[in-house]
Design a binder for these strands. Structure first.
Lengths: 242, 242
DNA sequence: CGAGCCGTTGAGGGGATTCAAGCTCAGTGG
DNA sequence: CCACTGAGCTTGAATCCCCTCAACGGCTCG
């Protein structure tokens, strides 16, 4: 299932061999609020893992024993509706915290699945608890992240699941651009994934992508990667309002 | 704007005149984790307010000085999209905590607007902070509520914004039933509200309601209230899967 | 009584879905 | 080497569900 990286990965050990203190996402990660000594301790409580596209970080209903800091790659949150359809409810990029419900000793609420090759740090529930005890900042940081997740969910629901197929697709590209390192190089979901994100038929998603390619807003390199012309994307988005 | 209550309201002072300790939603409210002494102090930091349908609890972007415990009635969260359309992203019922972002000294993220006559307790950011300092349970309770809100948002996005118009309307009724005191008596949103919740045209929402009335799943008393036959609702929902 | 809001219903059109066929590409095995 | 297969993507044609436009009735309020 796609063993070749879709996006350039940071060196295998993004922690840089020096523990959390040298991690590439250090300033964006949960532990960014910890002091140097705490951080040293923390490094011990952390396990590193890497996943290939399609592999789950965790699954809905599973007892949640750890939270995860996403170091690189993209993860999707999905859920199966009462009717049996899969719906993708959001995406997470580098620096994000996944599976926060673990802190509350609750089972995971969604499926979290790697979209690209992904590097993660797993932090046991117990470790987070321990630090949160003496360090009020960590508790606060957790709250910030809950609020951020809630806001992201509302944004996703408001912008990506309403309007014409074209408008949804354009806004999706906007999101993908933000998740990408830069340079317009983005991870391009499969058509089925797109359709489950935007609530469209697979064929409709395909048609929209094709059209965007004709308009040179999108340029597909190999399946799974594309370059987006941010300029033209903004123009197309602006043209929707009219 | 509708000064007659749509739903039976608890006695004017739901706090029961005895402060938070006797509040009707005491066991479901944020301060349910406080001890008796704390609770006595807390009562001083709380202001009571009531709103008529259509009045805002708070508005997007406003500096957030307080969180609110919803004592009775229903509140909706809404947002205006980039394209200028209103979207309703969720509903809150008695016991819910509104405007949590205040704790983080962030401006409110959404508009929160009374759908029915509403009774609230406003708790200043400072007061919550003070209690959260010495009482770890309160911090935890806040986290629980963030997680709950996130889960609710995902549920709403997954179930109510996909599928046929009929399926969305049926699932909306399900939600409305849960928000209601019981007995099948529910608050029935205006057609415009429904359309902004479910991403349908106003006329389509009306048509669906009409049809549900013909099927005796729904019985509209006066505008804004209805009785739902929970039995038949479940049947109709089950029939969708086939 | 007219104005305005809300809800309802009809008619027609359009955008998305559905059904279907055909394409490329990778992997498999003859 | 090449046929065969299956997955993923694309495109066409027909259908359908929902949207848009429109008219109308009930109701409240000035």
């Amino acid at each position: 299932m796609g063993r070749e990286p879709y996006l350039p990965l940071p060196p295998l050990d993004a922690a840089g061999g020096g523990g959390c203190a040298n991690c590439l996402v250090r300033h964006r990660a949960l532990f960014s609020v910890l002091g140097p000594q705490d951080l040293e301790q923390a490094a011990g409580a952390v396990t590193h893992l890497q996943l290939a596209p399609g592999e789950p970080v965790y699954r809905h209903g599973t007892p949640a024993m750890a939270v995860f800091t996403l170091r690189s790659g993209i993860v999707r949150f999905e859920r199966v509706t009462a009717g049996g359809d899969r719906r993708i409810l959001g995406l997470a990029g580098p620096g994000a915290l996944l599976g926060q419900e673990a802190v509350l000793q609750r089972p995971y609420a969604d499926d979290a699945i790697a979209c690209t090759p992904v590097a993660l740090c797993g932090i046991s529930r117990a470790a987070v608890d321990r630090f949160a005890q003496d360090n009020g900042l960590l508790a606060r940081e957790l709250m910030q992240r809950w609020q951020f997740a809630l806001d992201a969910s509302h944004h996703w629901a408001a912008e990506l699941t309403a309007g014409t197929a074209r408008s949804r697709m354009l806004k999706l590209l906007q999101v993908l651009l933000q998740l990408s390192p830069g340079g317009g190089q983005v991870w391009l979901p499969s058509r089925v994934e797109m359709s489950d994100m935007l609530d469209l038929a697979e064929e409709t998603a395909s048609r929209m992508v094709s059209r965007l390619r004709r308009e040179q807003i999108l340029q597909v390199d190999k399946p799974g990667t594309a370059r987006v012309d941010g300029q033209k994307l903004q123009q197309a988005l602006a043209a929707l309002e009219a």
